[in-house]
């Protein structure tokens, strides 16, 4: 009999509880069996993704600019601001925000990134991960495992609700990324598989209904800042789950709620560049300036 993917979060959590294995381990074993690749190859492929993510964070914090000039340079400002030592939400939080913004600025500038799960939401996971690297003194093995755990949760979200802004709004992109990051952060901090699932449920619940309204249809504004919120939200959700808070709505039902909300979003709010911030007078004026035409 061949192995197929996990269909439900509950199935994944129960498997982890029964076997006593970490979720990252189950995801690695699953990948090795379904892909036919060796464990070493699967591991190294993820390690390469990690290296790509690190390179994007480092490039962004040095300062990039997109072709339109709409985004770029915020990560540099946040870094300088942190160095003054007066952040309101704490240096740890703003470190995550800086990493998230840096990555998405590189993406907007057509640089190389690793989609996690999408390019528009590619800052959220590195935002959390490279902060935790310092906070929890994670080694490379733990960081690679973080990505397998995040990916395992992401597969279930993607297969049950989707991860495209054009289909499900930004909740499906940054919301999914935030849920994946929250779940993986819990495992990295030594929490249980069930707490990981709870953290995912919190993170997605908090961003439910988030619309996809990029100005001029470009993955720039408000995408870059939304990734900052995606990372911050993941950390809050992970902390709450680690504190023992529980989700009234089971994680799988949260995912199907996201799917239904996405289907109910009007097309103006699903990556068409028509509604939300894109539809504001300023948003439309920027579109005119860049492409010389208004949206119908």
């Amino acid at each position: 009999m061949y192995l197929t993917m996990y269909e439900r979060i509950e199935e994944l959590v129960q498997d982890a509880e029964k076997s006593g294995k970490a979720i990252s381990e189950l995801v690695i074993e699953h990948e090795v069996q379904t892909s036919g690749m060796s464990r070493e190859d699967v591991w190294n492929k993820m390690k390469h993704n990690l290296e790509t993510m690190r390179a994007a964070v480092e490039r962004g914090e040095k300062g990039v600019k997109s072709m339109t000039g709409l985004t770029g340079g915020q990560a540099v400002k946040i870094k300088a601001y942190r160095e003054q030592g007066h952040t309101l939400s704490g240096d740890i939080m703003m470190q995550a925000v800086q990493n998230a913004v840096a990555t998405n600025e590189v993406n907007a500038a057509m640089g190389v990134i690793c989609a996690t799960p999408t390019a528009g939401s590619s800052g959220t996971l590195p935002g959390v991960l490279f902060m935790l690297e310092k906070r929890l003194k994670m080694n490379e093995e733990q960081m690679v495992r973080f990505l397998f755990t995040a990916g395992g949760f992401g597969m279930i979200i993607a297969n049950n609700a989707g991860i495209a802004g054009a289909s499900g709004g930004c909740q499906a992109e940054v919301g999914s990324a935030s849920g994946m990051g929250a779940a993986a952060a819990v495992e990295a901090a030594g929490g249980s598989p069930r707490q990981s699932a709870t953290a995912m449920a919190f993170a997605i619940s908090n961003l439910l209904g988030l619309v996809c309204d990029p100005i001029a249809g470009l993955v720039e504004v408000p995408c870059v800042n939304r990734n900052a919120v995606g990372s911050a939200n993941a950390l809050v959700a992970a902390d709450m789950a680690l504190a023992g808070c529980t989700s009234i709505i089971p994680p799988d039902e949260v995912i199907s709620a996201m799917d239904k909300v996405g289907r109910n979003l009007p097309r103006e709010l699903r990556e068409t560049g028509l509604g939300g911030l894109a539809g504001t007078p300023t948003g439309q004026a920027i579109r005119m300036k860049i492409f010389g035409k208004e949206m119908d």
Binding site: A115, T116, G151, I163
Partner: peptide, 16 residues
């Protein structure tokens, strides 16, 4: 595959 979610490595700006 888990690499459908963590990946692909790509040139920005939009995965879809």
């Amino acid at each position: 595959s888990v690499f459908d979610i963590i990946g692909p490595i790509m040139i920005g700006p939009s995965s879809s």
